[in-house]
Nucleic acid binder design. Structure first.
Lengths: 227, 227
DNA sequence: AGAAGAACTTGACTTCGGTCAAATATCGAA
DNA sequence: TTCGATATTTGACCGAAGTCAAGTTCTTCT
């Protein structure tokens, strides 16, 4: 797909004129697994739109622990927080799987907000992100590891009965705010109870068991996926 | 102070014309301690600017526990997330102390974003909130109760050697993400160690002890590739 | 003032989930 | 295919902070 088409997709409400204005400034980039897009504290003059792959957004605690804020799915932009107020990224971004992104330089971008429709969509995304982060706080502080695990599945892959995991258990562990040992033990327990079965990267879950977690909305599935 | 002056203060970059446009629509309101401004899930058609007092912003967990996201200080607006995308408040707001606010109806407000300077300031605030929430996640998940307590003091009252608390211990406990029993025990321990002394609502802290928490967050960024 | 009810404290107890350490297992590059 | 690096599992252990329950202050309202 052409860069212009991708951008049109990313910003559907942006006028053709503005689209062509920034298209020339944007560039496609590929990041292999584990590649850093930016680190917390980095000065940035661009933000990103994820086309394909998975990006982990996280902060690093003083002790070096990674606190995952969000695993991004294709179709979302991120890092836009450098546009105003401060040009330092407050979080780090790393590719969890090989990923394709558009890099959007920040200079001139702010002008595009003169367009009312585009601006409203843009601000709406910022607000969706704010909602997401408040949900995330609830998620991390109020649910135990088991509930976080199942909510993660539903949030990321939907309510299904079998899943094909595209990320490692280690990454799942950190996405749900725990460590590999704890996840490993949880899985073991769930297998024993015959709630799930797991082989390779294929996971099967008892549908009726999973449903108990799907009632209240899990973080992040409000149509448009915030980061 | 006159409502118009207050608004001018709240939105310094807004033109006189726009200011007078919304001034007529806004209203002053007073909320006594424990009064609810809005609850999570409420439909809203207005947001607020805090002039005086203290507002607690929180979510409620499925088990009824309150998860405090932020204690607001005068000079900030809140609830603006109903402006676009969704008109439901994602959080609840309650006055912790008697508070004066301006109520700003959402209709017509969005038009004000046509003004570039004002719009940029407004978006900058949204981004600051996003930064704050990511910090809050780090705060709640990576620090123990003692560290959260001292960081709370510094964050809310500044780095001082004596404090006059304007909110109850119960509220402090929930602001730092714990329960009264735990805070009570922490205080007892700190008193014993002669790190603090506390009588009535006056708190004194050993300055040198407090300083260890005042260093701006310095995540151990070694530059290495996170895995 | 006195009573009802908050707020706060204290004690005994529990537990989830983390740490540390030591196997296995698995995967990717040469 | 083999080697070394990651990823994953397993066991033993621990500890911060929560729960439950029972006092003990404070506040506040009549």
């Amino acid at each position: 797909m052409e860069l212009t088409d991708i951008l049109k997709n990313a910003f559907p409400s942006l006028s053709e004129r503005s689209l062509s204005l920034i298209a020339g400034r944007c560039s496609l980039a590929e990041y292999p697994r584990n590649e850093v897009l930016f680190l917390e504290g980095d000065k940035g003059s661009a933000f990103f739109f994820l086309i394909e792959g998975a990006i982990k957004i996280f902060k690093t605690s003083p002790t070096g622990q990674e606190i995952v804020l969000k695993l991004l799915e294709p179709g979302t932009f991120f890092g836009e927080v450098i546009l105003l107020e401060k040009n330092e990224y407050p979080v780090s971004a790393v590719a969890l799987t090989s990923s394709r992104v558009v890099r959007i330089p920040s200079d001139r971008f702010i002008e595009l907000l003169d367009e009312r429709f585009f601006r409203n969509d843009f601000i709406a995304v910022l607000m969706a992100k704010q909602r997401y982060l408040t949900e995330r706080i609830l998620y991390l502080t109020s649910y135990d590891v088991e509930e976080r695990f199942f909510r993660f599945l539903i949030d990321r892959y939907g309510l299904r009965t079998s899943y094909v995991l595209d990320i490692s258990k280690k990454d799942i562990a950190s996405a749900i705010g725990t460590i590999p040992e704890t996840l490993s033990r949880l899985i073991d327990r769930l297998k024993r109870r015959e709630v799930i079965s797991w082989s390779g990267n294929s996971l099967t879950v008892q549908a009726d068991y999973l449903e108990q977690f799907s009632l209240e909305d899990a973080p992040g599935h409000t149509g448009r996926t915030p980061s």
